[in-house]
Design a protein around this nucleic acid. Structure first.
Lengths: 129, 129
DNA sequence: ATGTAGATGAAATAAATTTTCAATTAGTTG
DNA sequence: CAACTAATTGAAAATTTATTTCATCTACAT
């Protein structure tokens, strides 16, 4: 999802676009799986309360998503595909692009309409093996 | 992973098997994605501190895993495959068994040795559509 | 049975998150 | 474009969640 789409969703659901919200959105969009600390560092002038509230609002609207990769909560834009490799040795996380999902085997048959997904693959990185 | 395997891992890494740890392990094993509240309800006689410490220990040992499905942290046995359908409308979560991953497309080539994974599929359940 | 390193839990502490509420502002309306 | 209003912000307080401390206890090796 592009930033513009996110802003459209926000406005479309009757919320105001404030400079704070824009800053936070940009912070989350800038890189994958941002921690609270990452986000607050990128938004030094936005009050903590607003950061928490905005992350909750954006999550509820389905614009961003909270994920767990081993340490605390992290946030990402709720785009179609996220794939993470998580090393159980050193805790390092890297993304990869190529989607290993077989669409044929997705459970759409149950009446569930799939919009996006997040995949966490656990194992050992080459350094830790 | 069966409970026995988990116990083996725990002991094998030089930790003691206490009744508290066993209770907590059983609580996590009993059902998928258990919340802190779920776990504490199932372990009423185990002190809060021990619950937190044990969940951290078991996570570090790779026996259990912390995941995020929309509300707070949840815990599961770190078995090979977990697949969740998360409705963005009502927040409901259901599991499904059939693994939609195409092993061929997993990034083992990068020297990463895959041991397990967790997949979260977001969308709308039939009721919310 | 005994010894001991490791484990537990109550209390205190710290960290993370939410609520409250007065002041501010985005976006509409005249 | 000035005025209005409901939504938003943020400082402080409150609450919730998680960790540290430390005296006591116990699993398990001997």
């Amino acid at each position: 999802m592009r930033l513009e789409t996110a802003i459209g969703k926000l406005r479309g659901s009757g919320h105001k676009l404030t400079p704070q919200r824009l800053t936070i959105l940009e912070a989350v969009a800038e890189e994958q799986h941002q921690s609270m600390a990452d986000i607050r560092n990128r938004c030094p002038r936005v009050g903590m309360v607003t950061v928490y509230r905005t992350l909750n609002l954006l999550s509820e609207l389905g614009i961003i998503r909270r994920i767990e990769l081993g340490d605390g909560p992290r946030y990402e834009l709720a785009t179609g595909c996220h794939h993470h490799l998580i090393c159980e040795g050193c805790g390092n996380v890297v993304e990869f692009e190529r989607c290993p999902l077989d669409r044929e085997r997705l459970p759409e048959a149950q009446g569930f309409e799939v919009s996006s997904h997040s995949l966490e693959i656990y194992g050992l990185c080459s350094a830790c093996r």
